[in-house]
């Protein structure tokens, strides 16, 4: 890993109901592409992107994309731990996906290990004509839960880049949230030993 000028590695999580466009948002951000035939995520998926923060420093983002299906929820919350930032996505054309937000926040509360992690609410699919959730509703919800809020469209690219950058910025500005765990995902060297690392294996991501 060419970590020389990497300031820190941040773990970011994308959660939300199934089909709201989590994977698409991520794909738009990392590869700047949009795939209308984006497959439904199974379990969790993982992408990395390095972005520039605060002058010349770079931050490596390890972004975990999760499946939204109820059944996977027994599994995916395990990956919440150690996340510094979370993107909670809903579909502006689906009221139901908006209504489920509370449940997601609950889950986050339960499983996230860092209590001061930065939360961002993203209303996706604003390119769609038939809107069921207004921007005001989104704003209201975000204000109530003290989150960042933005509306975006993975399809038209609108707001996506900005959303991620804003989130990272906010994390960097939050003291104590990221400085301590610079090792981030580098720990993976351990696993290659092949040995069952009984004593050495529980470092936090």
């Amino acid at each position: 890993m060419d970590d020389q000028d990497i300031l820190t590695t941040l773990k970011i999580l994308i959660i939300g109901e199934s089909g709201v466009g989590k994977s698409s948002l991520l794909l738009r951000f990392t590869d700047d592409t949009f795939d209308p035939e984006q497959a439904s995520t199974i379990g969790v998926d993982f992408k990395v992107k390095t972005i520039t923060v605060e002058g010349n420093n770079k931050a490596k983002l390890a972004i975990w994309d999760t499946a939204g299906q109820e059944r996977f929820r027994t599994l995916t919350p395990s990956y919440y731990r150690g996340a510094q930032g979370v993107i909670l996505v809903y579909d502006v054309s689906s009221k139901q996906s908006f209504n489920k937000l509370d449940a997601w926040l609950n889950e986050l509360e339960t499983f996230a290990t860092k209590h001061d992690l930065v939360k961002m609410l993203v209303g996706n699919k604003i390119d769609k004509e038939r809107r069921e959730v207004s921007k005001e509703e989104g704003l209201k919800f975000a204000r109530k839960h003290r989150m960042l809020f933005i509306e975006a469209s993975a399809k038209t690219k609108e707001g996506v880049q900005y959303a991620f950058e804003e989130l990272v910025e906010k994390i960097i500005q939050t003291p104590g949230l990221w400085e301590t765990d610079k090792q981030g995902l580098k720990l993976s060297e351990n696993a290659s030993d092949g040995s069952y690392s009984a004593c050495g294996g529980y470092c936090v991501i």
Binding site: V44, A62, S78, L185, L187, S188, A191, G201, C203
Partner: peptide, 8 residues
């Protein structure tokens, strides 16, 4: 941890 590492 190990699991996540493997996936990552």
């Amino acid at each position: 941890e190990e699991h996540a590492e493997v996936l990552a």
